[in-house]
């Protein structure tokens, strides 16, 4: 800061210096970040549950920003044993294997049971009723084949920059995946 120079010239010098620094900074940060950009198909954008890690704690039912969580139960029929005594359908202390409410595990009655042939029953999830509590998933994984699983439905998910259920997931099972495997299914494993 010399007092000999004309102050206007000095001010002009700082102004130009600022422009060069700002412009250079933007180009540097922009170029470095542009190098990190992954192409649209490859970038991990879609929140999904890794069911190998999921322990069905039930937090994703309540922690999603949506009024009803974007998590739903899905059924991998090709893995299902079609059992009469279904660990995901009946409570463990069910007295009788009928459709009475006190025997049902699902709190919203979202699992439909249909007779196929002796001794097999088909189970279907009504996703309009399911709230993603994961009780049936826990039952199925503990006593059955583990064909029921929780997953984030893409058409319901808002795709928040930071998924609020991913942050409370105790097993760190929720990650972003790329478009190519935007749904993690169980029977495709």
């Amino acid at each position: 800061m010399s007092d000999n120079g004309n102050p206007i010239k000095r001010r002009e010098f700082f102004r130009r210096l600022g422009k060069v620094l700002a412009g250079g900074g933007i180009v540097a940060v922009g170029a470095r970040s542009a190098a990190n950009v992954k192409s649209e198909g490859k970038a991990d954008l879609y929140w999904q549950i890794d069911h190998e890690k999921c322990i069905q704690c039930g937090r994703c039912q309540t922690s999603c920003v949506m009024p009803v969580s974007a998590v739903r139960c899905m059924h991998a029929n090709k893995v299902c044993g079609y059992c009469d005594l279904c660990g995901g359908y009946y409570r463990t202390n069910a007295k009788e294997l009928n459709t009475a409410a006190e025997n049902m595990l699902c709190p919203t009655g979202a699992i439909a049971r249909k007779f196929v042939e002796e001794p097999y029953f088909e189970y279907t999830i009504d996703e309009a009723l399911c709230n993603g509590c994961g009780k049936c998933v826990k039952g199925c994984s503990s006593f059955g084949n583990g064909s029921l699983f929780l997953q984030i439905r893409q058409e319901l998910c808002l795709g928040c920059n930071e998924c609020s259920i991913a942050k409370v997931c105790p097993s760190g099972a929720i990650h972003r995946v790329s478009y190519e495997d935007a749904y993690k299914f169980k029977d495709q494993a």
Binding site: H51, E52, K78, V79, G81, Y82, C83, Y120, S141, F143, G144, N145, G146, S147, K186, A189
Partner: peptide, 12 residues
């Protein structure tokens, strides 16, 4: 096959 997929019951 995933770790949690236990084939307790065979595919019908």
């Amino acid at each position: 096959m995933s770790r949690l997929l236990v084939n307790r019951f065979p595919r019908p």
